[in-house]
């Protein structure tokens, strides 16, 4: 996944989850908000609402406070404690409108509070506003995770995603591979042809990653001329084949600022065909030491370690 493809869901209608024990209210909101093009999800109580939120991941929640069983405050607390749902904006829609109730709702993380009875035009505007704020927050968050020169994800994003992917692969016993790529003799390029030439090389490699990697792969700029490629559902041998293909393409590129001088990269790969109990940080270290082994053994090559039982080391150049 490169940042350019990460918001493919923009044309999907926003999902509005209404958690309220009043059937009349559901019917009203379903028709009147549904007419705005939203996909409406109904939950008639707190427990049901939490279940639907976890299952359907809504874009905004309209939450009643006074409900039998799990009340709105408890639902709000649970939503904000769930890492997958804590950023979903919650508009409290309630007949409880004392200052104390409002303060509690905002302190628990509600983005807005609308008293019942409410004006439909006002509610529609508030839903639009909550969705807009949420979208802007996501955009800001994404920008903070992007590398300015290449448009790839940055190292901070890598750290989070790598830990998540490693955990997921181990839990589901799925393949996962990691490659660390470093441009060979990059300092020479900079010193000989200037920093713009070096930047062009970095950008050229980033474009190759964007073109060659699958949508589910994650390409990050790890450091100056170093990149990390997270490849979920990819065995180490497949990762090696992919990195080798990219390495060959990169080596064959011609650079307008130094047409007579090609550039290569070295690559260290560590992967597993199933979830192996290797700490994510150790996994990175293994890929990194393979990278340096590739450098030491002559550069312009990839070295891979298969971390699944009976590991073996293979070298390609």
């Amino acid at each position: 996944m490169t940042p350019q493809t990460s918001h493919s869901g923009q044309d999907v209608p926003a999902r509005v989850l209404v958690i309220d024990d009043c059937v009349d209210l559901h019917r009203l909101l379903k028709v009147r908000l549904g007419a705005e093009g939203y996909e409406m999800i109904e939950a008639v109580g707190g427990e049901d609402g939490l279940m639907r939120a976890r299952r359907d991941t809504p874009d905004v929640v309209l939450l009643d406070l006074e409900m039998p069983g799990l009340d709105g405050f408890e639902v709000l607390r649970a939503l904000k404690e769930d890492p997958r749902l804590q950023d979903v904006p919650v508009i409290v829609l309630s007949g409880l409108d004392s200052p104390g109730d409002k303060v509690t709702a905002f302190d628990l993380g509600a983005i807005d509070f609308v008293g019942k009875p409410f004006d439909m035009a006002e509610l529609r505007a508030r839903v639009r506003s909550a969705l807009k704020i949420s979208s802007l927050m996501r955009m800001l968050e994404q920008r903070a995770q992007l590398d300015g020169l290449t448009g790839l994800w940055n190292r901070a994003y890598f750290e989070t995603q790598w830990a998540n992917e490693a955990k997921r692969a181990r839990r589901h016993d799925h393949p996962l591979s990691l490659a660390i790529v470093d441009i060979d003799r990059f300092k020479d390029v900079n010193d000989s042809y200037g920093h713009p030439a070096g930047d062009a090389v970095i950008q050229g490699l980033a474009r190759l990653f964007q073109r060659e990697l699958r949508g589910s792969d994650i390409a990050c700029r790890y450091g100056g001329e170093e990149f990390a490629l997270v490849m979920p559902e990819t065995s180490p041998s497949s990762a090696l084949a992919l990195c080798e293909r990219i390495r060959e393409e990169f080596g064959a590129l011609s650079w307008p600022r130094h047409p007579g001088r090609g550039v290569t990269f070295s690559c260290g790969i560590a992967g597993a065909r199933g979830g192996v109990p290797v700490d994510p940080a150790d996994w990175v270290e293994i890929a990194d030491s393979n990278l340096y082994a590739a450098k030491r053994s002559g550069r312009d090559r990839s070295i891979m370690t298969d971390l699944t039982p009976e590991p073996g080391i293979r070298q390609a150049s």
């Binding site: 024990d21 009043c22 009349d24 209210l25 009203l28 006074e66 309630s94 007949g95 019942k116 009875p117 409410f118 439909m120």
Partner: peptide, 11 residues
């Protein structure tokens, strides 16, 4: 009564 207070004006 609470539910009617909240819903009836919407209709």
């Amino acid at each position: 009564a609470h539910q009617l207070k909240g819903a009836a004006p919407g209709y």
